[in-house]
Amino acid sequence: MSAGTDPGIPARRPAPDADPAPSGGPATPRAVARERRRRARARFWREYRTNRAGVFGLAGLLLFVLLALAAPLIVAPADLSVTGPPGMPYEPPSAEFPLGTDNFGRSVLDLVIWGSRVSLTVGFTATFVSVALGALIGIVAGHFGGWGSTVLMRITDWFIVLPTLVLAIALAAVMSRSTLTVIIAIGITAWPTTARLVRAQTLAVEARPYIERARALGAGHAHIMTRHVLPNVMPLLLAQTTLMVASSIIMESTLAFLGMGDPTTVSWGGILQDARNAGAVSSGVWWYLLPPGLAIAVVALAFTLCGRALEAVFNPRLRGRR
């Protein structure tokens, strides 16, 4: 008679937090890891949705991302041409043109929707370059230490002291005017803060006892940095990414407004530059200036709210602050 059917031996019940075994056999390490990741994602979302500001920011961010992805379906390329515009110049908002027209007769709403593609692409790509560079320098400096760490940190301090916008303008002025130039200029100038934060987190992680045990068992530098340090700094990098995307979008708009962007593409900063050059301020054509400016402000606010919410989720000391 088995233990489960013997009345004298109570049947064992699985612990509530135990990882369930797949049907038909014992749990495999891959199944256990997959179940733990699923539970971690569910726990993360339960904590994130308690932050109303973070949910509001996420909703706004998803709206702009969907608009950027659907822009080719909403706006026809011919509507952005200056040779055959659909309306008259400087038409005020109406049923046909909800946000009015620009000095060429193009719909400002179409320009804002199409400009979201360039602005969001530059923001995400430049942030990825900046965060990746900062994470690499921060982990290497924190892991190896010594004179190499000192040199990397002095270079980081030099970039921190320099005005970021001035350095980005200098790089954009030297290189050719293109979207890639703007991405490189923002990515190269915005990484020092991430490097500092990641280095501090790396030093804290490598002071833990399990890192010493891993070294005693023969773990090399690459194993420790990729399997132990990087997973522990990923929450910090994720929160830093959401905060930096807003800064990258604002910097891209600033560079485009100053004439450093690609003149052949439509972006929110480029729309503001065209409005200034066309004399929209002195002419009182507010519908040419206000929509792209509001789009920049709302997207930056959405990313900032998401970043603050992620900080509250990953940092237990901030969870009570809403």
Rank of each mutant, 00 (worst) to 15 (best):
G4N: 13
D6P: 07
D6A: 12
G8A: 11
A11H: 04
R12Y: 10
R13F: 12
R13C: 04
P14K: 08
P16E: 12
P16M: 08
A21L: 05
G25H: 11
A31D: 12
A31F: 14
R34P: 01
A40Y: 02
A40H: 12
R41K: 13
R41P: 07
E47H: 13
E47Q: 14
R49P: 01
N51W: 08
A53I: 02
F56P: 00
G57A: 11
G57E: 06
G60F: 14
G60N: 14
L62H: 10
F64M: 15
A70E: 03
A71D: 07
I74R: 04
A76F: 02
P77F: 03
D79L: 07
P85C: 13
P89R: 05
Y90P: 00
P93D: 07
S94R: 08
E96W: 00
E96R: 13
L99T: 05
G100R: 12
G100M: 06
D102V: 07
D102W: 08
D110C: 02
L111A: 11
V112Y: 02
I113M: 02
G115N: 03
G115R: 02
S116R: 02
R117H: 06
V118H: 00
F124K: 04
T125V: 15
T127C: 14
F128V: 15
V131W: 11
L133S: 13
L136G: 14
F144C: 07
G146T: 01
V151Y: 09
T156S: 13
W158T: 14
F159D: 03
T164W: 06
V166R: 04
L167W: 08
I169W: 10
I169S: 09
A172K: 09
A173N: 10
A173E: 11
V174F: 15
R177Y: 10
L180I: 09
T181A: 10
I183Q: 10
I184R: 06
A185K: 13
I188V: 15
T189M: 07
A190W: 04
P192A: 11
T193P: 00
T194P: 03
R196I: 10
R199D: 01
Q201V: 12
T202I: 09
T202Y: 11
L203I: 14
A204G: 12
V205Q: 09
E206D: 08
A207F: 02
R208N: 11
R208K: 15
I211D: 03
E212G: 12
R213A: 15
A214W: 07
A216T: 09
L217H: 10
A222Q: 01
H223A: 13
H228S: 05
V229D: 03
V229N: 00
P231W: 06
V233C: 03
L237V: 11
T242V: 09
A246F: 00
A246V: 09
I249V: 15
I249G: 05
M251R: 01
E252K: 01
E252M: 05
A256M: 05
A256V: 00
F257W: 07
G259K: 09
T264Y: 13
S267K: 02
N277L: 14
A278T: 03
A280M: 09
S283L: 13
V285T: 08
W286H: 06
W286K: 06
W287T: 03
Y288H: 10
L289M: 13
P292T: 03
A295I: 06
I296T: 05
A302R: 00
F303M: 07
G307N: 13
R308K: 14
E311P: 04
V313M: 08
V313E: 12
